[in-house]
């Protein structure tokens, strides 16, 4: 059931990447500036497709929106210490993959409050760190790791080059053989065997 959001009682159907649908209140959805820009005034026929995000992520994002429906208007990011117990639980129960998915979805849906809180949590990971510690946090490879990676890539490239050369050589031989008439092919093989035999005899 979908209809223009004139009251907070209105429910909208949301479609996830799996093709599943679930409903979200209009009041919760209106925290999404993307939704406001796309559907608020014109309404939606059928489920609203947010199909870049899976059901679990979208449900998590709208769980936050439903919870913050009754909170006062957003006025900039809060300090981590000012977050409510509910907010802290909300963030703490997510694993990293879910957290990243939630940030991406919240960013796409342009939910200012949730995006800001997520960004504040990430900013906390950087505070008080020196460059090496930051590199570890943001999982950037170190110089040694980059060097090792480069060596592996060079080895791989060299191996690939060898394989390519061999393939080209084989292709060339095959081509040559294919071009020869059968009798000539038999003669060529005989000559090769004779040369081999002679080389053995000389030893």
């Amino acid at each position: 059931m979908t209809s223009p959001a004139s009251s907070s009682e209105v429910k909208y159907l949301i479609e996830s990447s799996e093709g599943n649908t679930f409903d979200v209140s209009g009041a919760a959805l209106r925290q999404s500036n993307t939704f406001n820009a796309m559907f608020l005034n014109i309404g939606a026929d059928g489920p609203i497709p947010f199909t870049d995000y899976n059901e679990a992520t979208l449900k998590k994002v709208f769980e936050y929106c439903e919870h913050s429906v009754n909170e006062e208007n957003y006025s900039g990011p809060k300090h981590q210490d000012d977050l409510s117990k509910w907010d802290l639980n909300f963030f703490n129960e997510m694993d990293q993959k879910m957290f990243i998915d939630v940030i991406n979805a919240s960013n796409f849906l342009d939910i200012e409050r949730l995006t800001s809180y997520c960004c504040e949590r990430i900013a906390r990971m950087l505070r008080g760190k020196n460059t090496q510690e930051m590199i570890k946090v943001i999982t950037l490879p170190t110089a040694e790791e980059l060097e090792a990676k480069q060596k592996v890539e060079e080895k791989k490239a060299a191996a690939a080059k060898k394989v390519a050369e061999k393939a080209a050589e084989t292709a060339e031989k095959t081509e040559t053989l294919e071009e020869l008439p059968v009798q000539q092919l038999v003669q060529t093989t005989r000559n090769k065997l004779t040369r081999k035999y002679l080389s053995f005899s000389n030893e």
Binding site: N107, A123, R127, T139
Partner: peptide, 25 residues
Amino acid sequence: EPIFPILKLPKNVIVHVLEGIDFTQ
């Protein structure tokens, strides 16, 4: 230490994160 692949996030999110850290950081 927490580990987080910040640089894989969309640029506007990274910018949002950076706006929340002080000058020295």
